[in-house]
C-alpha cells in the first residue's frame, strides 16, 4: 500500500492525506494499520476561553519542545458553523513562526458537529501524528468558554489557560477546571489584574491535590513576549516525569483507553440502532402520535427496546 509506506517514511503530504482519510472516515482500515506505530508520543493539551492566548502559547512553547531534534505535531481545533457546516480555521496565523520548520506538522480541524472542545475525530487524528513519529503532540481546543472535558481524555498533560479578563468565570468553573487541569496558566501577564488572578487562584487551588497526587502549579506567562515560557515547558516536563515515575502515566493511559472503548461502543450502538433496529417510518408515525399527545416518548422507547432486550 503506497500511501501507508510514504506515511511511514514520514512524508508530509502522506501524513496529511492519512489525516484527511481518518477525519472523513473514508478508510477505517487505515487506523488499524497505523495503530501499532502509536504510543510513543507525549500528548499535551492546551485549553481555555477564546482569546486567552492558546495559539500564541503553542507558538511560544513549541520551539522549546523542538530542542534536541524532537518533532512536534500540532492539532488546532476551531468551531464548525452550525448554520452552514463550514468553518474558518485561523489558528495558523498565530503559529506562523513554526510554519516552515521541518520538524513541525500543523493541522487545523473543524469540530464538525461535536459540542466539546475537540472534534469527534481529534483523538484519531492525534494517533495519526503519533504514528508519524512525533515526539510531542499538542492539541489546542476550540475554547468555547466552558470547561472542555474531552481534552483531558486524550492528553497526558493538560494546561488550562486563563486570562485576567476571565476572573469572574473562574469561580463558576472551579470544580471543572480541576477535573481537566494538570497545570494552570495565567496568560497576558502584562495586563493589569494578572497578579490578582494568580493570588485568587492560589487561594482557591493551591491546597488541592490532583487524584494522581500531583500538586497543581500556577504559572504566569506573557505569550507574545515569550515571558514565563521556559518555566511552563519545564513544568510540563516535570509533570511527565512525575507521571512516569509514579506509574500514573500507564494508569492514566489505560483509563483513557477504557473511555475510548466506551465511547466507541456507544457510537456503535447508536449507529446500529439507527441503521438496523429502529424502523424510521414507524418511528415517524409514533412521533406524530406523540405530538398529538396520544402516546408518550417513554412508550415509544419501550416499544423500540422490546426489539433488543
Amino acid at each position: 500500500m503506497e500511501l501507508l509506506q510514504r506515511f511511514l517514511k514520514g512524508e508530509k503530504p502522506a501524513i496529511a492525506r492519512v489525516i484527511t482519510k481518518i477525519e472523513n472516515g473514508t478508510d477505517p482500515k487505515l487506523l488499524e494499520d497505523i495503530f501499532p506505530h502509536t504510543g510513543k508520543a507525549y500528548y499535551i493539551g492546551i485549553t481555555g476561553p477564546p482569546g486567552a492566548g492558546k495559539s500564541s502559547l503553542v507558538n511560544a512553547i513549541v520551539p522549546k519542545l523542538l530542542e534536541n531534534n524532537k518533532k512536534v505535531g500540532i492539532i488546532a481545533v476551531d468551531p464548525t458553523s452550525p448554520f452552514s457546516g463550514g468553518a474558518l480555521l485561523g489558528d495558523r496565523i498565530r503559529m506562523n513562526d513554526l510554519a516552515l520548520n521541518e520538524n513541525v506538522f500543523i493541522r487545523s480541524m473543524a469540530t464538525r458537529g461535536s459540542l466539546g472542545g475537540l472534534a469527534t475525530k481529534t483523538k484519531d487524528v492525534a494517533l495519526v501524528l503519533d504514528a508519524a513519529d512525533m515526539d510531542y503532540i499538542l492539541i489546542e481546543t476550540v475554547g468555547v468558554g466552558q470547561v472542555e472535558l474531552d481534552i483531558a481524555q486524550v492528553c497526558d498533560t493538560t494546561v488550562v489557560v486563563l486570562v485576567p479578563e476571565s476572573g469572574d468565570a473562574i469561580q463558576a468553573m472551579k470544580a471543572g477546571i480541576l477535573e481537566v487541569a494538570d497545570i494552570l496558566v495565567v496568560n497576558k501577564g502584562d495586563r493589569t489584574g494578572a497578579d490578582r488572578l494568580i493570588l485568587e487562584m492560589k487561594f482557591a487551588f493551591e491546597l488541592r491535590v490532583h487524584n494522581t497526587g500531583w500538586h497543581y502549579p500556577i504559572l504566569k506567562t506573557t505569550a507574545i513576549e515569550n515571558i514565563g515560557i521556559d518555566e511552563l515547558v519545564s513544568t510540563i516536563k516535570s509533570h511527565r516525569e512525575y507521571l512516569e515515575k509514579s506509574g500514573e502515566l500507564e494508569i492514566g493511559r489505560k483509563k483513557k483507553l477504557v473511555i475510548r472503548v466506551n465511547e466507541l461502543i456507544e457510537e456503535r450502538i447508536k449507529t446500529h440502532l439507527h441503521d438496523y433496529v429502529i424502523d424510521q417510518k414507524q418511528l415517524k408515525k409514533m412521533i406524530d402520535k406523540a405530538y398529538d399527545r396520544k402516546i408518550t416518548p417513554h412508550y415509544i422507547t419501550d416499544e423500540i427496546a422490546k426489539k433488543i432486550f
Binding site: S55, S56, G90, I93, I224
Partner: peptide, 10 residues
C-alpha cells in the same frame, strides 16, 4: 520593539 502579529478576526 518586536513585531506585531495580527489578531485573528473575521
Amino acid at each position: 520593539f518586536g513585531v506585531y502579529k495580527e489578531p485573528i478576526i473575521f
